[in-house]
Design a protein around this nucleic acid. Sequence first.
DNA 1: ATCGAACCGTACGGTACGGTACAAATTCGG
DNA 2: CCGAATTTGTACCGTACCGTACGGTTCGAT
Lengths: 212, 212
Amino acid sequence: MSLAVHESEYTNTEFTPRQQAVLECALGLLVAGGEKALTTAGLARNANCSKESLYKWFGDRDGLLAAVVAYQASKVHFPPEGGATADTETFRQHLNAFATELLAVLFGETSVALNRLSIGQSNKDDNRLGQLLLQRGKYMISAKARSLLEAGRHRGYLKFDDAEEAYQVLYGLAVRDVHIRLLLGDKARPEEHDLESQAELAVQRFYKLFGT
Amino acid sequence: MSLAVHESEYTNTEFTPRQQAVLECALGLLVAGGEKALTTAGLARNANCSKESLYKWFGDRDGLLAAVVAYQASKVHFPPEGGATADTETFRQHLNAFATELLAVLFGETSVALNRLSIGQSNKDDNRLGQLLLQRGKYMISAKARSLLEAGRHRGYLKFDDAEEAYQVLYGLAVRDVHIRLLLGDKARPEEHDLESQAELAVQRFYKLFGT
DNA sequence: ATCGAACCGTACGGTACGGTACAAATTCGG
DNA sequence: CCGAATTTGTACCGTACCGTACGGTTCGAT
């Protein structure tokens, strides 16, 4: 599956297994109680590690937060293109699958928690977290989407000038204002829980705009 | 102008002029340095008031934050419908104007700062700020948009089943992922600064989906 | 068995900030 | 002009948390 979350199927080169376990615990604290719930003492207590180790591994609290974001981003993989996208129908199914996975990632509680964290820290001097999330989150997805759309254009299924612009339209059609509402603490409406239908409707409208 | 910001043309019944001045100062601190820059001592110093007055007026720090959000929301008015929207062309111009103003509000630094604040506080128990921003911000705009779209449908310019759904599509076409990128600290691309063109393009695509 | 490295748990200093208390100053109605 | 109420400026308290230090423990290597 594209965009799927792998549970460390093999060792992540960036962090040791022990560190990954601690970061996983930090993610849990973040999802449960937000940024202020992620204190160095609290994490040490919950993860059964010492504060000294935290500071040895991550430098300071900001480094810890950056490590959490980087760790989660490292779990989202983009396996190479699904191979033979021969006919029109399977290509459209690929678009549907992409849109569905996009919604699944964006609306997941982990993504919501990390977005809240990064947005809350976006007033810092350098704003490492926001840049990190944009770089290793949105830009990756955008690249994946562009290559998919370019393939569709090359085969004559789609028609557009700028792939980035086309992707942004697809994003807007699929996400609408649901993401910001979730970030603000609103509950998703019932029909918005059916990601498949939402994605299919978005792709349908996308074809009405960019289909041949 | 719809959605225009009025500078307290006449006394806001909710806050005294002195309190409004202090809240204005708080807004400035928020826009400049984010939530952590808005301390009670700092606000008292900058606004030339005492902490005791702050607590007397707003109860506690959370009350102060809520007051800031409520105050800013009270400045955004939705004057009654522009009156005679007779022909097709003027109606479409109204849609363009609405979309432009929507982008102008959402991408303004004040809105960005308040959204960041509310999102950062959305893990609290009751989440007053997020509810407040949703209630007095997004829902108001949504209502305005729905009435506008309903009028278009009634006159035969548009065709859709659910006005709320149609509005969300218009929102997605206009905003795309720019809002979340701004919240994360990304800079808007050059072409995204031309709100008029962006809005016009969005309305053009909206007509392709819902026009008659 | 011994050494050394990494790690755990805890305790502690320093600091920032929310909230309160109080005397001096200012405003304002009568 | 006067007195009451409000506001200001400052000092202060308690708390929460970051960052560090240190004693004790586990565990693999030699």
